[in-house]
Amino acid sequence: MAPAAGRRVPGRSSAGRSDPAAPPIAAILGPTASGKSELAMAIATRLPIEILVADSRQLFRGLSIGTAKPSAADRRAVPHHLLDLADPDEPFTVADWLAQARPLVDEIAGRGRIPLVVGGTGLYVSALVDGYDFASQPWSPEIRERLAAEVETEGLATLAERLARIDPKAAERTDLRNPRRVLRALERAESAGRTQLPRSTPYPGRLALIGISRPRPELSRRIHLRTASLFDAGLLTEVQALLAAGYSSDSAALRSHGYAEAVRHLAGTLTLDEAVASTARRTRQYAKRQLTWFRRDPRIVWVAAGDRPASDPQIVEQARQLLVRLIA
C-alpha cells in the first residue's frame, strides 16, 4: 500500500523525493543511556562508518564526564565528528551545528564510508534530515531541559519576569504562580522567536534511522547506574576545573542535568546523595522528552534491546541488516 500523502516512511527523505547523487545518511537514535554509542561502536566492526555526534552537550569542550562523551580509545578506533566545538559559555545554535554537520556527510561518503549520526538531540537530527525549520517544530526537548533547570536554580519569579519581557500578552494570560504554565508559555515564546532563524532544505538522500527501545524500568535502571558512575568517575573534579577556569555556573552548559547538581554540591547546598538523586530524576525526565520527540517520527525503525547490552551480537546484526536495507 502506498503511504498516505505527507506521511514519511523509512528510507525515504522527508521531501518525498530522492536524489541518487546524495549519499545516504544512517542514524542510531534514542534516549540517553539507551546504548546508542555502544551499538555504534559495535556496528563499526561490521560496516565502514564515521560517526556524526548529535548531542547538544557533548559539543562543549570540557564537558566530558558528565555528558558520557566517547572515550579517547573509541575516538581513535572510529572517527567521531562534532565533538568539542565550543567553550561552555560560548553560544552555539542548531544552525551552527548544522553548518558543520552537513558538509561532513559528503566528506565521509567521499572516503567510501557511511555517515552515521549518533545521538539523542532530536532537534539536531531533524535539522539535518528535515531541514532547518522551527516553524514545523512545536517544541524542543532542549528548550524544556534548559527551562526546567532554570526554574530550579533561578526560581519561578525570574522566569515569570522573562516571560513578561519576551511576550507580555502571554504573561497576562498565564498564571504566573504556576511553574508548569510559566514554563510552557516561556517555551512557546522562545520557540516562536527561533522561527526567524535561517532555514535549510530537507536532505534529499536515502535515510536509515534506527532507534534503540528499552522497557521504561530498564531505561530507568540504566540511567541510575550511569548517574552514579559519572560521579564516581570524577564529575565533581571536572566541574571544579570548569569553575576554576572562569566558566560561570549560570552558563547553559553548567545548568544542565548533572552539572547543575555538581555545582550545588560543591557550593554546599546539596549533599552528594541528593545531587546523585536529583541528577537521575532530571535525566529520566529528559529521556522521556527525547522519546516523545523520536516516537513521532514514523521513519525510525525501533530495535527492542530489552535488558541486553547494546553490543549483544543479535542486536548488532539486526541493526546492521536494517541499516544496509534502508540505505540500499
Rank of each mutant, 00 (worst) to 15 (best):
W139L: 07
R284H: 10
A40D: 09
S251N: 10
P10S: 10
P103H: 09
A109G: 14
E50T: 09
T195L: 02
R76F: 06
Q100H: 13
I43A: 04
P198V: 10
G120P: 11
P88G: 04
E142Q: 12
R226T: 12
Q285K: 13
D312T: 00
D89W: 01
L183F: 01
A135R: 15
R320L: 08
P23C: 10
V316A: 11
S256I: 01
D175A: 09
S251I: 04
V316S: 11
P202I: 03
G211L: 04
R320I: 10
L29E: 03
S191G: 02
E145R: 14
L254H: 08
S278W: 05
R320V: 15
F134P: 11
A157P: 07
A267R: 15
G122E: 11
A33K: 14
A109N: 09
R165I: 14
P198A: 07
K36S: 09
D19Q: 02
R255N: 07
L272F: 03
E261Y: 08
R255Y: 06
L270Q: 07
Y203D: 04
R199Y: 00
D106L: 08
V324R: 14
A328M: 05
E172P: 04
W302R: 05
A208Q: 13
T237D: 15
A228L: 14
A40N: 12
R111M: 11
M41S: 08
S256A: 15
V105L: 05
V129R: 13
G30L: 04
E187C: 13
A280F: 00
R325E: 15
S71M: 00
Y203K: 10
P168M: 03
D106K: 07
G30R: 13
Q100I: 04
A135I: 00
A54R: 06
L230Q: 14
R255C: 11
P10L: 12
R222D: 02
L207H: 08
E142H: 12
